[in-house]
């Protein structure tokens, strides 16, 4: 293509730069941006905390349960946490706009809480995590899942063992 053709094409297309912040910026669906945490799907396995290369994720035991914190200013948006998470509890949204004033820098945190609950069987206090049942055969029904979830880890194991598995 000679220069006149490129020139004509560029004239027709207009500027190639994005109009941001006056207009929208190119943001593909798969863009790996801000972390989102869904406490209700979390199994509490803490794999994400272990594989995070930036140590941006911290779990902590509190009187109310286990808290999750992801520091956006430490996160390098690598996606390791989402990739190794056995559920969909941690997810990278395509929101990339993390600009903020300096005063807000300690608020750039995704926070979540896996609350404590009382086991319906033994009455012990345990975390209300999502049960690890990915490999359960046959898959649990919605009802079984709710029943299982209401128990502590020990009683969950018992529940699964005593589950009637059709031959």
């Amino acid at each position: 293509m000679n220069f006149l053709t490129i020139f004509a094409r560029n004239l027709k297309q207009g500027p190639q730069t994005e109009a941001f912040p006056l207009g929208p910026a190119f943001t593909p669906d798969r863009l790996r941006g801000r972390i989102e945490f869904k406490a209700e799907s979390c199994e509490g396995c803490r794999i994400c905390e272990r594989v995070c290369p930036a140590n941006a994720i911290r779990f902590a035991k509190t009187p109310d349960g286990m808290t999750f914190d992801c520091w956006h200013n430490t996160c390098v948006f690598c996606g390791n946490c989402e990739f190794y998470c056995p559920t969909d509890a941690i997810h990278q949204t395509n929101d990339w706009d993390l600009s903020h004033v300096n005063a807000d820098k300690f608020d750039m945190v995704e926070h979540g809480l896996i609350p404590n609950q009382t086991c319906v069987d033994c009455g012990a206090t345990a975390l209300n995590t999502a049960p690890m049942v990915k490999n359960a055969k046959p898959p649990l029904s919605a009802e079984e899942y709710t029943e299982l979830r209401a128990r502590c880890p020990k009683c969950r194991a018992k529940y699964l063992k005593n589950r009637k598995v059709p031959a």
Binding site: F26, P28, D29, R30, R32, V76, G79, F83, N94
Partner: peptide, 26 residues
């Protein structure tokens, strides 16, 4: 930039594409 947009659309980042993991790709 066509290539960079392609990387961003497929892998989610223009430079650190995060395609690899031990045992395959992500």
């Amino acid at each position: 930039e066509i290539g960079q947009d392609m990387l961003e659309s497929i892998f989610g980042n223009r430079q650190d594409i995060g395609a690899m993991c031990i045992g395959g790709v992500r």
